[in-house]
């Protein structure tokens, strides 16, 4: 398949290791990976903060980059951005755009997948040949869980990773408190949620907390770092791309 990589603005700018891992993993699994260079951002921050009209150019940009028929599927290492593409782009196009944009946005959104979804549902693999000799706990991010319904797909992938000690996160399905601008506008409540998430993570004695969204990991990792817990964060893609030959090169986390 010809798979277009959607790096997401956060992945491209701040967390490139997760995107590199996604590109390498998909290629290793036999996919032709392309990176449409016009891509920028899904516009989720704008929509979720109330700036629907300002999201329009971003929705248009996404459709222009990914609706093309030469692309079989779009894959992003982010449940949240994929959620926005699939569930919000149509609304923005309908309220602020043209019928033609709505149609294009629908076409682009219809073939956009979160990484774990793509691996399990489209490629039909759970064992991607990964090796990761660490104790890891998995946090299901809210949008992958509730908007995309990825269910246990990430866990099925993780269970096949050799040498990985997967430990269950208590109260896993509770939000970490990120919520985009929520973390700024209601930073104290967000911190209270983060505190409980960190308590549950540290209780597992894991070395790493893993998730499918760099944004939530930035939040969780920021807290774990501030408290010098010694627990790192790592994107699911980085674990899945890690092999005995190429053990996760440089965890982009600050420990």
């Amino acid at each position: 398949m010809r798979v277009a990589l959607f790096a997401t603005c956060l992945g491209d700018s701040l967390f490139p290791e997760a995107v590199k891992a996604t590109a390498i993993l998909l290629t290793r699994l036999g996919q032709e990976v392309v990176f449409p260079p016009g891509q920028t951002c899904c516009g989720q921050m704008h929509v979720n903060t109330g700036y629907q009209a300002d999201a329009l150019p971003l929705v248009r940009n996404y459709a222009a980059d990914f609706a093309d028929e030469s692309i079989d599927a779009v894959v992003a290492p982010s449940g949240s951005c994929v959620g926005s593409v699939r569930h919000q782009h149509g609304t923005v196009a309908e309220h602020h755009g043209t019928p033609a944009l709505r149609e294009r946005a629908g076409r682009a959104g219809g073939k956009t997948y979160e990484l774990a979804e793509f691996l399990v549902d489209v490629l039909g693999v759970t064992d991607v040949g990964a090796y990761f000799p660490h104790r890891v706990t998995y946090h299901p991010t809210c949008h992958s869980l509730r908007m995309l319904r990825v269910g246990d797909k990430p866990l099925r992938l993780l269970r096949q990773v050799r040498a990985l000690d997967l430990v269950t996160l208590p109260e896993a399905e509770q939000c970490c408190g990120f919520g985009g601008t929520f973390a700024l506008k209601n930073s104290e409540t967000s911190t209270a949620m983060l505190a409980d998430k960190m308590r549950n993570i540290t209780a597992t004695d894991a070395e790493f907390c893993c998730a499918g969204d760099s944004s939530c990991l930035m939040h969780i990792g920021g807290g774990l770092s501030r408290l010098r817990t010694g627990v790192g964060t790592v994107h699911l893609a980085q674990i899945l791309a890690s092999t005995e030959q190429h053990v996760l090169a440089e965890p982009e986390v600050i420990v």
Binding site: G11, S13, V19, S187, T191, H219, G222, G223, R226, E252
Partner: peptide, 15 residues
């Protein structure tokens, strides 16, 4: 944000 969380510095190189 930084009242309770650190932030990593931007990487040397974007994706």
């Amino acid at each position: 944000w930084t009242s309770a969380r650190d932030l990593p510095v931007p990487p040397r190189e974007t994706f």
